[in-house]
Design a protein around this nucleic acid. Sequence first.
DNA 1: GAGCTAATGTACGAACCAGTACGTTAGCTA
DNA 2: TAGCTAACGTACTGGTTCGTACATTAGCTC
Lengths: 221, 221
Amino acid sequence: MTSVDEPVQPGGRVRDAARTKAEILDVATQEFARAGYDGARVDEIAARTRTTKRMIYYYFGGKEQLFTTVLERAYGVIREAEQQLDVDHLDPVAAIRRLAELTFDHHERHPDFIRLVSIENIHGAEHIAASEKLGRIGSPALDVIRRILAAGQESGLFTADVDAVDLHAMISSFCFFRVANRHTFGALFGRDLVDPARREHYRTMLGDMVIAYLTAERTAD
Amino acid sequence: MTSVDEPVQPGGRVRDAARTKAEILDVATQEFARAGYDGARVDEIAARTRTTKRMIYYYFGGKEQLFTTVLERAYGVIREAEQQLDVDHLDPVAAIRRLAELTFDHHERHPDFIRLVSIENIHGAEHIAASEKLGRIGSPALDVIRRILAAGQESGLFTADVDAVDLHAMISSFCFFRVANRHTFGALFGRDLVDPARREHYRTMLGDMVIAYLTAERTAD
DNA sequence: GAGCTAATGTACGAACCAGTACGTTAGCTA
DNA sequence: TAGCTAACGTACTGGTTCGTACATTAGCTC
């Protein structure tokens, strides 16, 4: 998550736009994820940076645009992970499982991302709408799902009537809920969904669920 | 959602604690759901009430306790809906499907509730922790699931190794995601998950998914 | 109908917070 | 090395926002 972690290099640059911007983004990501958009404090972000509030406005224009940039970067990370995915050598069942597990793992490893998405939804996705970058990008995961689905349906292995977008929603919902609603769920039902001891259980459960759905015997109608 | 909708009764009471409290709670629910905890404005809530800000502090103590009370009421509504559920006369498959559909319908009909839960999770469920009422209550849905699951597993119909809490999480995650992440999902993938035209499709999809998972043929291991 | 209290309204304060005016300097370039 | 500009810091402001001190009244009780 942290892209700035080099210690202050003694002989290094004192002024470095790229590093200052990156540092602001790192801290802003944490602060927005911690407290929500309105709960986040620009002063707090500045204080936890080696620079000042002035620089936030210098580089990003304002709180709103800063949040948008934070979102863009967070979505960029998951997009990258999805691009790494290579399932062309796997059979459809294994391929879907692999994809589901990648999503599962990414959500688990990036709770800040989940929180940012929750926050953005509270605000009606207005920052995504305002971002050219986020509007343009598709989802590598969708392309992968499309190909797997086509192969599975052609071979008659997959019987379900879903398209890639719906299947993506199904997989994401489980992964997202587990992390996003961890606190209320834990408080109300006394079970920590992100307990490492139960991690494999849920990871398997997700794959089983998706595969069962895709391959279930269906009565013709 | 709105529990105060009687027009101002000409001969009615001018001072009515119960009604004032209820009206504040109605408006507060909307305002918190609209803008999040920190985005919500106490002045705005007061302005949209027939009373003043003074009363919010008089009855609820402060913004924090107001939000807690709003949460308590929102959870109370879904608890009530779950209590209405009677599936004892149904076979396990039909019973699970009915329960899933109830959850689906409730989430769809109460987007404010979903938003409040999202917001509460951003804040680490600290208000639930602070509420005696919310800590005490269990979930009627869980009891129902437990009974259905026991019946289904005993008859050998259900093969999956899940307990009630996990199954509840599975069902909730799909219903929750569809409403909570509607905006970002729509903006990124161009599909409105809450489009009425697709409602039946997703409602069926949820049931199919859960049943397929529960009844899937499994290789002994 | 006198008196009491829960219920209500007004006006204000003090802290907070996003954003900016103004001034300074590092480090590149010619 | 002079000069220029991108990069940076300080100090402040204007508006906002939670919360409250103080004043008032409706309506019940005896």
